[in-house]
Design a protein around this nucleic acid. Sequence first.
DNA 1: TAATTAGATTGCAATATTACGATAAAGGTT
DNA 2: AACCTTTATCGTAATATTGCAATCTAATTA
Lengths: 110, 110
Amino acid sequence: MGATKTEHFTDKQNAIATLAKALGHPARVAIMEYLMKVDTCICGDIVNELPLAQPTVSQHLKELKNAGLIKGSIEGNAICYCIDEKALTKLQSYFANISDKLEKKKSNCC
Amino acid sequence: MGATKTEHFTDKQNAIATLAKALGHPARVAIMEYLMKVDTCICGDIVNELPLAQPTVSQHLKELKNAGLIKGSIEGNAICYCIDEKALTKLQSYFANISDKLEKKKSNCC
DNA sequence: TAATTAGATTGCAATATTACGATAAAGGTT
DNA sequence: AACCTTTATCGTAATATTGCAATCTAATTA
């Protein structure tokens, strides 16, 4: 054991979990926020921005990319990373929907 | 190595990462959705609902509780778990804010 | 073409997570 | 009191994640 039993859950649940997991590390949250802040989606100075070694940052970028939260395009020698809106929209609407439902129920217990 | 370097990131980034991490497993997403679905915040039939053994579910519940996403109250012999709205509101507004900013920028690259 | 630069990949050590059987703890029931 | 029910905890095995030094790859410049 040790591996997540994804096959027992719905695709939607797995999808949300994958996105959430990708944001489940402060470095990756910091990367997302940095990409938000910088207008021109600057590339690998993310490494200079973060308190982590280059291979570590590269790994975090890869995970964000695999989850679909960012996308990268080759820019000559460098690579330009930026936020993929689709994934964020998915998260946003998921939580908006939950909050909405909770609002309507208005704490009927605990 | 192996441990996350939380001390290098802001409290906010760590807070979001903690919440996201807690939802970074399909079983925990499923628990949240079940708690949403069941009006009377029924307790330990979560175990019956999930395809995991009781100790495993108990562990997932503990993680959700530590992250502040759910709260539990003793109900005689059993325990009544339900969603803690505050944490979900935090997530909801975080993603709403990001989506809003992205909307205004409207993809200036990649 | 050689040297440089940007970024990914490899390999490895340290630590964390996932899952569960066995068992404990606490309240309810007979 | 003896027993059952519900949930938590312990111990442990399997696997995943985090982080980095060293190295590799590909484009850039000298």
